[in-house]
Amino acid sequence: MSKSVSKSVKPIKIVVIGSGGVGKSALTLQFSKSKFFLDYDPTIEDSFSKSCYIDNEMARLDILDTAGQEEFTSMREQYMRLGQAFLVVFSVTDRKGFEEVDSLIQLIYRVKDREAFPIMVAGNKIDLQNDRCIDQSLAQELVQRHQEFNPYCAYIETSAKTRLNVDLVFHDLVRLLRLYNAKGGSKQAKKSKCSLL
């Protein structure tokens, strides 16, 4: 079924970014595969395509997982340029990863040369409540700061392990993108700060 439909739908390229070890691949894998892995969780996921109905409208999602590339910062812009929407993942058990979220979002604005862009921030690993060091309010605050000028930014808490909000995070991102496109997102004010990129 999905095959015949997917041809007519323009794919949406979603790029998953975040620090190393926060669970980017885990989230992506959980979303891509319906089956669960009993004895082994794969480490990586090649970019893949998935079609699904979101708000009664078919969407084809091409998802690019950037695991393993965190260290190689110069290549970052390479794959970020591909993205039409971004999933910025951090782990609620890792302060360093959370601190990088802001700069990653800034980088998106810079690479896309936009002041607003569809960005979903996901606080992953909330199943590990005991190790949690990033409060929900802290993450909310960060996203609210961005929402002041980027209405297409939202925060959600996930757990790839328990599959909590895994589908929702991707679906919401598509909703943000649709909203963004409906408001003529691509024609929105270009970022004035840097005219070079």
């Binding site: 999905s2 997917s6 794919p11 390229k13 891509s32 595969k33 480490t43 990586i44 090649d46 970019s47 893949f48 395509s49 998935k50 079609s51 091409d62 998802i63 690019l64 950037t66 695991a67 393993g68 590339q69 190689f72 290549m75 390479q78 794959y79 591909l82």
Partner: peptide, 28 residues
């Protein structure tokens, strides 16, 4: 294999990404 993103743009990006993923796989 499931649906692979077969757009040329994505295919062209894969080799670059692949090189950087060996470290992760070996680590695992």
């Amino acid at each position: 294999d499931g649906a692979v993103d077969l757009q040329l743009g994505s295919l062209l990006t894969m080799p670059l990404q692949r090189v950087m993923k060996y470290g992760l796989l070996l680590q695992e």
